[in-house]
Design a binder for these strands. Sequence first.
DNA 1: GGTGGATTAAAACGCCTGTTTGAAACAAGC
DNA 2: GCTTGTTTCAAACAGGCGTTTTAATCCACC
Lengths: 223, 223
Amino acid sequence: MESSEATRDRLLQAAGEEFACKGFECARIREICIRASANVAAVNYHFGDKEKLYIEAVLEAHRCGPGADEEAVDPMAGPDDQLRSFIRHFLGRVLAMQAPDDWRHRLMLREMLHPSSASDALIRESIRPRFDQLKAILRRFCPEAENRRLNALAFSVIGQCLHYKMARPIAERLIGTEGVEALDLDFLTDHIATFCLAALGVTPPFDAAGESVPEKSQSSAGS
Amino acid sequence: MESSEATRDRLLQAAGEEFACKGFECARIREICIRASANVAAVNYHFGDKEKLYIEAVLEAHRCGPGADEEAVDPMAGPDDQLRSFIRHFLGRVLAMQAPDDWRHRLMLREMLHPSSASDALIRESIRPRFDQLKAILRRFCPEAENRRLNALAFSVIGQCLHYKMARPIAERLIGTEGVEALDLDFLTDHIATFCLAALGVTPPFDAAGESVPEKSQSSAGS
DNA sequence: GGTGGATTAAAACGCCTGTTTGAAACAAGC
DNA sequence: GCTTGTTTCAAACAGGCGTTTTAATCCACC
């Protein structure tokens, strides 16, 4: 009875990795079973068919996904610190998706781009809470803004972060591998946070040197 | 001899549409041939195999793609007008990708996300010129900025625009179909342009109402 | 040791895929 | 009218796919 659960778990793990990097259509059941050291009939026995296995893999992915970093944003902090913190955690997850062991987030991202029947729970329990959290943070900057504006602001934040995951292959060809690697978590967090906070009038905008210097020391600058 | 070119063209068109909306792996040769009213053997006769057909379709897509809107950005205009113009045209193309007849841009986007052997010419002749154009515009705002900052700024602009294409399915589930439709070309162009220009210190930032009002009329505004 | 349900294993089943075949249809030159 | 080269067509091919079948194996319980 233990061993049955064991192969079921191994199948779930292998399926998650395979689905995450190849998608539902291109993932092969035989490959999943080889990874899991299981027989092809095992997926039918434990899950029924390929689609039910996929759904279980997505649910498993989002089961371990959320939670910890929900409280990463200090509710007592100021709105600018909250936004910075949100961007850092979101971007950290996005950049970490490159890691081969992080199939859960890659699978979730895949579900976001091509929602299937498995994405209802995903949206309800994982994506929407974060989206509402971001909107709540932005609401503190624009308490009187219409909802449409708040949606657009949220998408501006998310879009900038996700772009570094989506466009990585093309970015490497555009600015080179070393150019992409120069855009690490610390730099990008600061860049995007400053970009957004400047757009919201909290932080001074980028100057001619591409820096955002605090107001106080901007009285008389030579050169 | 004319009819041969005719079925070749029909195959190219049908293949473009099919590859654009299903990808290389999931597109079916038989479906392409049905669309093109051609026999399955025709693709082998005219192109050799599926991959060569795909490459030809990508090249065909980018052949008609670029050109006209390169000059859409007035070189004599101010940098803020140039950026606004760039965003409007880029966003216009992104949003127009939903249209079923615009398989060329969808196919190019697919190549951007998963570069194949067909994407060299695409990057060289279509993507890099636009990327350099955007960086040149941004350079006018930050003439002394390091290259890394300029890359990040460019990605901030592009990322915001592309997000509305990538995340449309999930956006519809988050804010509803009417919520997405409220984010039309005019609103988004103005939103993203204002967002970026405010971050660059050109335009006043979003205020509490989520608006970016010109400085002059911001002296005494009640409620 | 035998029994019965749960789990695994090998092989086969249709089905669909991209590709190829060999013949038919067509147009042009002489 | 025949040949020549090009283009189309229906049919078949080999291979991979998800799934199913059937038998073997395991393991707790009596």
